[in-house]
Each structure stands twice: as C-alpha cells, then as structure tokens.
C-alpha cells in the first residue's frame, strides 16, 4: 500500500468524523430532495415499464393454454374467478377508502405506495403524492384499518412516510375503553410499545388503542392497534410494559389517505 493511498484513507476517516461531529452539534445538512425526486421518477418509470412488459406475457400465456382445450377451459375459468375475486377485493378496498375519505374532515389526498424508502434502517415508504397535491411534512397517514404513519418529507410529486413501526415514530394515544392516555412508539419490528401506563391501570390483551389528538399531529380517534401482551408484574420501572400490534401491517399497505 503506497503512502499516498494510506494518507487518502486516513483523510477519509478524519473528514467523515469531522462532518458527523459537526452535524451532531449543529444539526443535519439539508437533504437531497432533488436526488430523491430523480430516483422516485426512475422507480415510477421502471414500474410502468415492467408492467407494460408483463401484460403481453400474460396474454401469450393464455394463448398457449388454448392448445390444450380442457386444460385451457379449466385454466380460463380459474383465471376468471381469480380476476373477479381480485376486482371484488379492489372494489371493497376502494369503497373503504371512499368511506374513509367521506368520514375525514381533514382529508388531503389519497396516494399509492410506489417503493420502500432508501434507508435500510428506517421503515419508510414512498408515496406518489407530494407538495403539488397538498401533502406536507408531519401530516398523518391512515388506511381504513387505522393509523399507518406520518409524512416526514415531501417534494413535488412524491413524499416519504415514516411507518408506525419505525423506532423514531411516536404518537399520543389512549385506550378506547378506559380512556387512559399514553405514548405509542415503534420498535423497528412488527410490534409497537405503549409507554407511560401506570401499574394501577388494568390493561388486558385485546384492548384497543386509538389516537388521543393531544400531540396536535394526529387527529383524535384513529384506531392504532390492540394490546398483544402486558407485563404488569412490576419487573422494573414505574410503568407497565405493553406491546401493541398495529391494525395496519406496513408490509401490506397499497393505498393510503393523508389527513391534516
């Protein structure tokens, strides 16, 4: 290894550490929205292109099935049934979204998920609506099942939402029955943690959590999830350890509604 290369390597480490130390004291540098925008547009173009490629192949597959009459008929009937089921499911989903839109006074936009966020560590999703559609940072993201997350950045035609299960997510919530307030936080995996519930509160698995609206970010009354397990034996700290499973599984989201 030459001295020059070693010096460059050393310089890289020093510059990176200085950059990060500076930002940890003075705050983050502005993010590259333009780069993200370019990447999102490319993602959209790739998705359209692959869809356009897949459709003719589906048709070819159907034509091949024509050669074997009996099989073709069974196949065609099966395909038809699946399509109808798909349409029925889509119809049901859209009806739910319509209902949700009518029920939400602070409705902003309905959006589709187009990809996962760039960071491997964060549970973020990219949606196809941005500032042009009125979507702004800190707006709430919901589905007919319940709270899905919040908008953390927004550019022209795209926005990034932070999922409910991300470790950096938190929201003010309350129990639907007892009305006890707490804070729900993501853990980075499928479950969330409900914090600040004292030991004298009776909590049992299955109890439903809704948003309280007290954090002035999320509208009150949005279903969040149900309690899956409770450690109320006082194994440590002043509060109960409560795990919550969100109603909306973020790996199954296709469409979302953004509300103020």
């Amino acid at each position: 290894m030459s001295k020059k290369n070693f010096f460059l390597f050393f310089l890289l480490i020093v510059v990176s550490l200085v950059l990060m130390t500076y930002q940890s004291k003075k705050g983050h540098f502005s993010s590259g929205n333009h780069l993200n925008n370019l990447l999102n547009k490319t993602s959209w173009a790739v998705k359209s292109f692959t869809d356009a490629l897949e459709n003719p192949f589906r048709k070819i597959a159907l034509r091949d099935a024509d050669n074997q009459r009996l099989r073709k008929e069974i196949e065609a009937l099966r395909l038809e049934r699946e399509k109808t089921q798909e349409v029925m499911l889509e119809n049901k989903r859209l009806r739910e979204f319509l209902q949700l839109r009518e029920n939400q006074e602070n409705y902003v936009a309905t959006a589709r998920i187009i990809s996962r966020g760039m960071s491997h560590w964060a549970n973020t999703l990219v949606i196809d609506k941005g500032t042009k559609d009125g979507v702004l940072k800190d707006m709430s993201v919901i589905t007919p099942k319940g709270l899905a997350g919040k908008i953390i950045s927004s550019a022209g035609s795209y926005s990034t939402m932070l999922s409910l299960t991300d470790i950096n997510f938190s929201a003010a919530v309350r129990f639907q029955e007892s009305r006890t307030e707490g804070i729900i936080s993501g853990t980075g995996n499928r479950k969330c943690i409900l914090k600040y519930i004292p030991y004298n509160e009776e909590v049992k698995p299955g109890d439903i959590i809704i948003t309280s609206g007290l954090d002035s970010f999320f509208p009150a009354g949005i279903p969040v999830g149900s309690v899956s397990s409770v450690d109320s034996k006082g194994s440590g700290g002043y509060f109960q350890y409560i795990e919550v499973i969100p109603f909306q599984d973020d790996s199954k989201i296709e469409e979302v509604v953004i509300v103020k």
């Binding site: 950059l19 990060m20 930002q23 983050h28 993010s31 760039m118 960071s119 964060a122 953390i152």
Partner: peptide, 9 residues
C-alpha cells in the same frame, strides 16, 4: 444525501 439522517456514515 438521500437518507433522512446525518451526512457522513
């Protein structure tokens, strides 16, 4: 630049 955290890691 595309991540939402600090520049450098």
């Amino acid at each position: 630049s595309m991540s939402l955290s600090i520049f450098g890691p």
